[in-house]
């Protein structure tokens, strides 16, 4: 889905999708434990991927 990205909660380790627009800062909360220590999981670049 557009405007969504994968995030990981540093407190409980849960991985989930949240609304994300680059450059826009939003309050993010882990849906499992409620922590705000929610980190964007950056996509690993692969050799064949276009634009890389």
């Amino acid at each position: 889905m557009p405007d969504e990205a994968d995030f990981k909660c540093l407190r409980c380790g849960a991985e989930f999708k949240l609304h994300y627009v680059k450059g826009v800062i939003e309050e993010r909360t882990c849906p499992r434990c409620g922590s705000n220590s929610v980190r964007l999981l950056k996509k690993k670049e692969t050799a064949g991927e276009p634009g890389k």
């Binding site: 540093l10 705000n36 220590s37």
Partner: peptide
């Protein structure tokens, strides 16, 4: 480890 730094509101 980044999970040694927490951000909580």
């Amino acid at each position: 480890r980044p999970d040694r730094l927490f951000l909580e509101w």
